[in-house]
């Protein structure tokens, strides 16, 4: 089966971040492959290793995001496509899905995978939007994938249980990081990635965003708490008391 994984470069959310004049300020170098996308790449690699096939990746981002494509190639993906946008271009989910839909017009894949959300915005919309634009059946929040003949069996984490969904191909699936633990690229993988093809082209027209970020604010802070000291029995006695459990 032929897979294409849509990947995003995101700021490392565990890095120090401040707000300056309503804008987020952080070390521009602290960027990573979105963890949910990394799981999608991993799953595609595992499925194609067992069943044959290919794994491409596609990324929308500024020039420097090429390193994130190389990361996926180092993990084992075969080919990359880079839709290049100027640094600091604001794209909402609708715009991202529109650009990706344009990209997929020129290719044919059995399965398109995306992360279920991006670690920085947590919007979780682009996958479903892309499926709708391409007219593909889809499933979201997958925690497991298997190939059965020419169908894909998705284990989806739903509200009250795991839904086992059978999708025909072509289809689209958004992946949870609960699906697997993405491999760390080997040195050989990193070296090999440098020789793999990356097709890079500037985006001709940036779609207008229907949703805009006006600015960033700190979270409302919680009232400071306190430790309950003492031996376990004393701690428990005081806890039961302050919680007024009776």
């Amino acid at each position: 089966m032929k897979f294409c994984v849509c990947i995003k470069q995101v700021p490392d959310v565990t890095a120090p971040i401040q707000i300056r004049a309503g804008e987020l300020s952080m070390d521009a170098g602290r960027v990573v492959l979105n963890a949910y996308d990394a799981s999608a790449v991993e799953e595609a690699l595992v499925l194609t290793a067992d069943n044959d096939g290919e794994v491409d990746v596609v990324l929308i981002g500024p020039e420097r995001a090429t390193e994130t494509i190389r990361k996926a190639l180092a993990m084992g993906a075969d080919r990359g496509a880079h839709l290049v946008v100027p640094e600091d271009t604001e794209l909402d989910s609708a715009a991202v899905s529109q650009l990706l839909a344009g990209h997929f017009k020129d290719y044919s894949y059995d399965v398109i995978l995306t992360g279920k959300q991006a670690q920085d915005t947590d919007a979780g919309l682009a996958g479903g939007m892309l499926a709708e634009r391409l007219g593909l059946p889809y499933a979201t929040n997958a925690v497991g994938l298997a190939i059965e003949g020419d169908q894909l069996v998705v284990t989806r984490q739903g509200d009250t249980g795991q839904e086992i969904i059978v999708l025909p191909t072509p289809c689209l699936v958004t992946c949870s990081n609960d699906m697997n633990n993405p491999r760390i690229p080997s040195l050989k993988g990193v070296m090999g990635a440098k020789k793999k093809p990356v097709d890079s082209a500037p985006v001709a027209e940036i779609p207008e965003a229907s949703v805009r970020v006006l600015g960033y604010e700190p979270l409302h802070t919680r009232e400071p708490g306190r430790f309950i000291e003492g031996e376990p029995a004393e701690q428990v006695a005081e806890l039961v008391n302050v919680l007024e459990l009776s």
């Binding site: 919007a123 479903g128 979201t140």
Partner: peptide, 22 residues
């Protein structure tokens, strides 16, 4: 909910809506 997250993006495209998730 997960059920809503599953349909929100596709519904927005289908109805031409702007969407503010979560």
């Amino acid at each position: 909910s997960e059920g809503v997250k599953d349909v929100l993006g596709a519904l927005a495209v289908r109805t031409g809506a702007a969407v503010l998730p979560d």
